[in-house]
Amino acid sequence: MLQKLTSGNHAQPFRGPISITRVRPSDIYREEIADSAIWAVKLYRPCCIEKRLND
């Protein structure tokens, strides 16, 4: 069955120098599991980095 993960399932846990949206691939399972990965692929960070140094 096709299962969609919408952008509404994103978390944003990082407030540092890079603006990060964290995606929880495991949300696609639609069930309570502690792990936020699809096994080895932990997360993706579609991020918009403004002019700065992430040192």
Binding site: V41, Y44, R45
Partner: peptide
């Protein structure tokens, strides 16, 4: 910059 960072175990 718009980018994707992919973390793999």
């Amino acid at each position: 910059v718009e980018m994707l960072q992919i973390f793999i175990r």
